[in-house]
C-alpha cells in the first residue's frame, strides 16, 4: 500500500498554485490540502495523480473571518480550527457540533473544510452543512474566478462542478440569525465513521410556529441536498413529534438512495426526526 510515483510541487502563493495547476491539471495533476481522503486513496492506488500541487504553504489560505454576513473559510482552514469560539452565534455553535462528528482528532488537525467539500463524499458533514445553509463556493483558476451556488456545486457521487484546474479558494457560509435554532444528527455504526445517514435542521420559532425552515439530508442519496417538500410542510406549523414524523415520511417518499436497502430510508427518517427535534429543543424521538 505504497502510493504510485508523482511529482511534488509546493507553491508559496495563490498565483503560483493556480499557474501550476493550469499546467499540470491536463496531466492528472491534483491539489493536496489536508490529504486525509486523497492519501488513503493513493495508498490503495485508486487515486494516482502524476503531480501533486501542495497548497499547505500558500500564504493567506488559512483565513477564517466573518464579513458582511458571511463566514469566509479559506482552503487551509482545518476541521479543528472551527472550534470553540472561532465563530460567534448560532452558526458557531452549529459548527462546533458538526466538527465534533468529523472523523477523529488526528484527522481534524490536518483535514480541511474546503478539501472535504471538493472531495464531495455524500456522507461528509461539511457538504451537508453547505448544501443545507446555501453556501457559496468561490473558485479560481488562471481563467478567472466564479461563484457556484450550493445546489450547483455537488454534481453526484464524489463529483463537483470544480474544473480540474480550479481551486476552491473560499467557502462562504451565511451567518445565521440570532433567532435561528439548529439541530444536527447522524448515525454511524462506529464512532467517527462516515455516517450512514445525517440530517441538519435550521429553523426559527416565531410565535410558536416554525419559520424559515431549512432541512438537509446527507449520506443517503448520491449527494447532500435540502428536502424542499418537507421544508414546505414544516413552515408555519407548530413543532411537534407528529409534525416531524410527517415531515420525515414526506421526505422519505422523495428520496433516491444510493442502495436498495430500505434500512437506509428508515435511518433517513430517524435522523430527520432527531435533527428537527434537536432544533426545536425537544427530546430525541
Amino acid at each position: 500500500m505504497k502510493p504510485a510515483p508523482f511529482r511534488y510541487h509546493a507553491p508559496r502563493t495563490e498565483a503560483e498554485a493556480l499557474s501550476l495547476l493550469a499546467e499540470l491539471a491536463p496531466e492528472e495533476g491534483r491539489v493536496i490540502a489536508g490529504g486525509q481522503s486523497l492519501v488513503p486513496a493513493m495508498a490503495l492506488r485508486v487515486a494516482r495523480p502524476s503531480h501533486l500541487v501542495d497548497i499547505n504553504n500558500v500564504a493567506g489560505f488559512d483565513r477564517l473571518a466573518v464579513e458582511d454576513g458571511w463566514l469566509r473559510v479559506g482552503p487551509l482552514v482545518r476541521h479543528a480550527a472551527l472550534g470553540e469560539g472561532a465563530v460567534p452565534g448560532p452558526l458557531g455553535r452549529l459548527l462546533e457540533v458538526v466538527r465534533g462528528q468529523i472523523a477523529h482528532l488526528p484527522i481534524r488537525t490536518r483535514g480541511t473544510v474546503c478539501g472535504s467539500l471538493a472531495n464531495a463524499d455524500p456522507a461528509s458533514e461539511w457538504c451537508l452543512l453547505a448544501a443545507t445553509l446555501g453556501a457559496r463556493f468561490h473558485v479560481r483558476s488562471l481563467r478567472g474566478e466564479r461563484v457556484i451556488e450550493a445546489d450547483a456545486f455537488f454534481g453526484g457521487f464524489m463529483t463537483t462542478a470544480l474544473a480540474p484546474d480550479e481551486i476552491l479558494v473560499e467557502l462562504r457560509l451565511p451567518v445565521l440569525s440570532d433567532a435561528a435554532h439548529t439541530g444536527f444528527h447522524e448515525f454511524s455504526r462506529r464512532a467517527g465513521d462516515f455516517a450512514q445517514a445525517a440530517a441538519l435542521a435550521v429553523l426559527e420559532l416565531r410565535e410558536g410556529v416554525i419559520a424559515a425552515p431549512r432541512l438537509g439530508l446527507g449520506a443517503v442519496e448520491d449527494r447532500p441536498r435540502r428536502l424542499l417538500e418537507a421544508e414546505a410542510l414544516l413552515a408555519g406549523r407548530a413543532p411537534s413529534e407528529a409534525l416531524f414524523r410527517e415531515a420525515a415520511t414526506t421526505a422519505r417518499a422523495g428520496l433516491v438512495p444510493v442502495d436498495e436497502d430500505p434500512y437506509r430510508l428508515d435511518l433517513a427518517e430517524t435522523v430527520i426526526r432527531r435533527a428537527l427535534s434537536a432544533a426545536a429543543g425537544m427530546p430525541a424521538p
Binding site: 511534488y8 509546493a10 490529504g35 492519501v39 488526528p106 488537525t109 490536518r110
Partner: peptide, 13 residues
C-alpha cells in the same frame, strides 16, 4: 504539537 497520522503525510510535507 498536533497529533497527525504519519501514514497520511508525505515526508516532503
Amino acid at each position: 504539537g498536533q497529533p497527525v497520522r504519519a501514514c497520511l503525510l508525505f515526508a516532503v510535507q
